[in-house]
């Protein structure tokens, strides 16, 4: 029971991170029908930028730990968001009218460029985050341990997800994003500036991914330049699991995948932990390609 509960909280914390990254995939997919392979590397950039800013500015010294981390998160999100827009300009915008697979190859190239740039700038060895910024103590709920750090991670990701959901559902700009996702041409005819919507999507998605990168740094304490692609693939699996192009789907898929993975690691085999997500991915694409709540991706033969 204790193992189960530990794995559940662990899975939910990781799942929240997957969900945040998955939102970036799903939003870009929703509007452009493009799998942004470089998204995982934007997540890594977030983690590294967070580390640099944390070390160089020493914000937590001036405004307290909580305020400093909040400010740090906003800066990381802004910067990664801008990198996201630049990525779109450089690698995807010239290919808007090309076959979709050209854009996928371009995305792959961009991903290679990002991960190698990080390696050249920061070196190939893993980097360590300063410890003790997040509270590490554990409280007990009905005698079961709940590490407070996991609660903070989960709460932060839930907060960001709910914020995004409200933004998409309730504001005018959010409505424009939804309209552009349904039919770009019709949205244009209705006077929506679709190019601006695409820019916005390439800001919000990477910003959330950057926040996830920062959270991984703070939670696990160690980051490396290749982590983007494994997190990216898992987050993509989460997006598919929930139904790609569907924002609540990405949230549900992320949390679910996190729990499935940590349960699988505990009860099936820890050595196969990374393979579990891929089995889930293959299984869901074969059995229910629409995801739990979403669009159809397989052609009938």
């Amino acid at each position: 029971m204790e193992l189960f509960f530990t794995q559940l909280t662990n899975g939910l914390a990781v799942g929240g991170i997957y969900a945040l990254i998955a939102l970036g995939y799903t939003m870009v997919y929703g509007v452009l029908k493009l799998i942004n392979f470089a998204h995982g590397d934007l997540f890594t950039i977030g983690a590294y930028l967070g580390l640099t800013l944390l070390a160089s500015l020493g914000l937590t010294g001036y405004v307290g730990t909580a305020g400093g981390l909040l400010f740090l998160a906003l800066m990381v999100m802004g910067l990664v968001g801008i990198i996201g827009i630049l990525l779109d300009r450089a690698a995807y915008k010239p290919l808007r009218n090309s076959p979709r697979l050209s854009a996928v190859v371009s995305a792959l190239g961009a991903s290679i460029v990002f991960s190698n740039t990080i390696m050249l700038v920061y070196g190939p060895s893993p980097k360590v985050y300063p410890q003790g910024l997040l509270p590490t103590h554990v409280f007990y709920l009905f005698g079961l341990p709940v590490p407070i750090m996991r609660i903070i991670i989960l709460a932060t990701s839930l907060f960001l997800m709910i914020g995004l959901y409200v933004f998409i559902q309730k504001t005018r700009t959010g409505t424009a994003i939804r309209a552009a996702a349904i039919d770009q041409g019709a949205a244009r005819l209705m006077g929506i500036n679709v190019d601006r919507v695409i820019m916005l999507v390439f800001f919000i998605g990477p910003a959330l991914g950057g926040a996830a990168g920062l959270m991984v740094g703070l939670h696990y304490g160690q980051i490396n330049f290749t982590m983007g692609w494994i997190y990216g693939l898992k987050a993509f699996t989460a997006a598919i699991l929930g139904g790609i192009g569907n924002i609540p789907g990405a949230m549900v898929g992320g949390l679910l995948l996190g729990v499935i993975e940590s349960m699988g690691a505990a009860y099936i085999s820890n050595a196969w932990k990374d393979a579990i997500a891929f089995f889930v991915l293959i299984l869901i694409l074969i059995v229910r390609p629409t995801g739990l709540l979403g669009e159809r991706v397989a052609e009938k033969i």
């Binding site: 799998i35 996928v104 693939l233 598919i240 694409l285 991706v297 397989a298 009938k300 033969i301």
Partner: peptide, 11 residues
């Protein structure tokens, strides 16, 4: 998996 659309086949 053969019938999956291009980018999904890739993944």
């Amino acid at each position: 998996i053969i019938h999956l659309r291009g980018d999904y086949l890739l993944i």
